[in-house]
Nucleic acid binder design. Structure first.
Length: 640
DNA sequence: CTGTCGTTTATTTTT
DNA sequence: TAAACGACAG
């Protein structure tokens, strides 16, 4: 069953005992290896209950689950395969706190604004988004508010000290609301393991075999989590590629993978260097680029694939011309028999998508932009979820504020303030305050909140008996949300209606997999794209290079390769950031199977001004050093 | 609550 | 440039 694996892959599958580090280059069959490891363990009689596999994205987890099930049968379904966050969420729900709400970035900002106000900051002077980043970074490094403050004090850093206070207040708000943000999920799980040895012991005993995918993307907190979990069995296998570490700005620490041998006393390190994806030309060009990074584990991908066509480089006058050139070439390729679904256009920043969109639409091609607003971030979805969260967790004032006047029931800022003040003095949640009412409420307020009170009581009853899908339906109907959208003349109302219907069906799909409504609610908020990028042959794909990681396309256009755009402006003076830009470029190039196009525009509008840009250094680098293999990696310069 | 006007600010965004 | 946000009027 492992016959088709190459020798290195076979080894990677067979070394099941002890720590194992696998450097898996782009397109080297990394996922296949992890899946075969799991299947092999199962075949050897290891119980699926004793295996844990952790990934970063839902998509990766999903794919892994499906393929394991395919190869190992129903037993494979019992293997615990999930994202870091879903893993943490379930552990917490099981061993710590049954009902908490997971706060996404928007919820975080609401709480941060509250915290800033409370600590006497002007939200205009101190940007909430910046504070969020600060807090998130701290959490990624397991720095709690107290240590944060102490550290700032030690450096007599006034600003950091006051930010530490905001961090502290933010945590207080979250706690009062029964909310955990993404970072907290990991932090609290680590704390749980540290404070309750018997709980840690239970999981340590259980997970005889642990696998971590995309290990180069782990942050410090996630590293500690894994480090805690690994003993006593220490059968910990991590897979990753330091050359594809492109999320350091999100806390990912590439040292985790580079130091794995030391930190886990790992004696087995393997490199998967045979690439099955790209032509030799593409690989050589990509290698020529990544080779310029100094801090990397030395490796070189090779392939049995034919050398294929040369990588092409086109230079254009403007971004408009660039788009015209790309679409013209797409036209030619489709004429040759390529499907739109074979083709992807990558760019460094989202703002670059515009000219491509315009021209593709004008030329009558179907395209889809990946990224942008995610499903669960949509207002209507958040509204419905807020109702459900409040029912699950009545202390969640942040969700309650969302729904108190949605749909409109005349409870404006003033009424809200009255209710909030009453809740504060009586030390009640907003939910309880509305249910119980108060003598201090004016008749007007009482009259307004009466229907809301009845609605909540009614929903609370159904909450006990409904499954998640039924509850969502009840919320949508009873709250008047459905009617509100139906009456809405706005063009977007129709699609918002469809979205909430999709939410209901997503709930019923989840129903089979997860038991309680609380589980489902939490897992839903961890889902990124419910409209999981259906693999449709009819659409040309447009996305940022970051989003392209893990994907592959027969034809790739890597656009906007200009100094100050790609590599991005900020990276020019910072060697570490420059290396990350280079890795990003490498990721983009190695997505291509057959054809790779590099393009740049010498003139581009940025911040409202047309600016001249030199071609990116990465273009030059892709040619490699003089005298070396000038055929395969050679760029074909196409004059326009 | 909704619309309008000025002000601000400009990566990347797995969860 | 333009989109997004907040303030304020109606």
């Amino acid at each position: 069953m492992t016959d088709h694996l190459n020798p290195q892959q076979k080894k990677a599958v067979e070394i099941t005992e002890g720590p194992l580090l696998i450097f898996a280059g782009a397109g080297s069959g990394k996922t296949t290896v992890i899946i075969h490891r799991i299947v092999r363990l199962l075949n050897q009689g290891v119980s699926p209950f004793n295996i844990l596999a952790v990934t970063f994205t839902n998509k990766a987890a999903q794919e892994m689950r499906n393929r394991v099930k395919q190869l190992a049968g129903p037993e494979g379904e019992s293997v615990w395969i999930s994202t870091f966050h879903a893993f943490a969420s379930r552990v917490l729900r099981y061993d710590y706190e049954k009902s908490f709400t997971i706060y996404d970035e928007k919820d975080q900002l609401v709480a941060i604004k509250q915290a800033l106000k409370k600590m006497g900051h002007d939200p205009k002077k101190v940007k909430p988004a910046m504070v969020r980043e600060l807090i998130q970074n701290a959490k990624n490094s397991l720095i709690d508010p107290e240590s944060f403050c102490l550290n700032a004090a030690a450096h007599s850093d006034k600003l950091r000290m006051s930010m530490g206070e905001v961090y502290q207040e933010y945590q207080r708000i979250l706690e009062n609301n029964g909310g955990l943000d993404f970072g907290d999920l990991i932090v609290e799980t680590v704390n749980l393991f540290k404070n309750r040895p018997e709980v840690l012991e239970k999981y340590r005993e259980r997970f005889e075999y642990i696998m971590v995918d995309e290990y180069q993307d782990t942050n410090y907190a996630q590293y500690v989590l894994i480090k805690l979990l690994a003993p006593p069995h220490n059968n910990i296998c991590v897979v990753g590629d330091d050359d594809q570490s492109i999320y350091s700005w999100r806390g990912a620490n590439v040292r985790n993978i580079l130091d794995f041998e030391k930190t886990f006393k790992c004696k087995n390190t393997l490199k998967l260097e045979q690439n099955y994806r790209s032509t030799q030309s593409i690989l050589t060009a990509a290698h020529n680029v990544i080779q310029n990074n100094l801090s990397r584990k030395s490796k070189k991908l090779w392939t049995d694939n034919p050398s294929g066509e040369k990588v092409k480089w086109n230079e254009f006058m403007t971004s408009r011309e660039e788009a015209r050139g790309v679409v013209k070439e797409i036209q030619r390729l489709i004429g040759m028999g390529y499907r739109p679904g074979d083709i992807a256009i990558f760019y460094r920043v989202n703002a670059q998508s515009r000219p491509f969109e315009d021209l593709l639409r004008y030329s009558g091609y179907n395209y889809k932009i990946v990224g942008g607003l995610r499903f669960y971030e949509r207002k209507e979805i958040k509204d419905i979820l807020a109702y459900m969260r409040v029912l699950m967790n009545p202390g969640d004032d942040i969700s309650f504020e969302r729904i108190i006047n949605t749909p409109a029931r005349g409870i404006g800022a003033k009424s809200l303030l009255t209710i909030k003040e009453a809740a504060a003095t009586e030390k009640k949640s907003l939910f309880d305050m509305v249910i119980s009412g108060s003598d201090h409420f004016s008749n007007a307020i009482e009259k307004k909140i009466q229907p809301l009170r009845e609605l909540l009581l009614r929903l609370n009853e159904t909450y006990e008996t409904d499954d998640a899908a039924a509850l969502a339906k009840d919320v949508i109907e009873l709250s008047g949300y459905h009617r509100m959208l139906e009456l809405d003349e706005d063009l977007t109302a129709r699609s918002r209606l469809e979205n909430i219907e999709e939410l209901v069906s997503a709930f019923s799909e989840e129903e089979n997999k997860l038991s309680s409504i609380d589980d489902i609610l939490s897992e839903i908020s961890l889902l990124t794209e419910l409209d999981n990028m259906e693999e449709n042959q009819e659409y040309i794909t447009l996305m940022t290079v970051h989003l392209a990681k893990g994907l592959e396309f027969p034809v790739v256009f890597l656009t906007g390769l200009e100094e100050e755009l790609f590599p991005y402006y900020d990276a020019l003076s910072d060697p570490a950031q420059m290396e990350e830009e280079r890795r990003l470029c490498y990721v983009g190039m190695t997505r291509a199977e057959k054809l790779l196009y590099l393009t740049n525009a010498s003139q581009r509008m940025m911040y409202g001004q047309s600016k001249w840009h030199l071609p990116s250094r990465f273009i030059r680098e892709s040619l490699g050093n003089k005298g070396q293999d000038t055929v395969a990696g050679d760029l074909e310069y196409v004059y326009d």
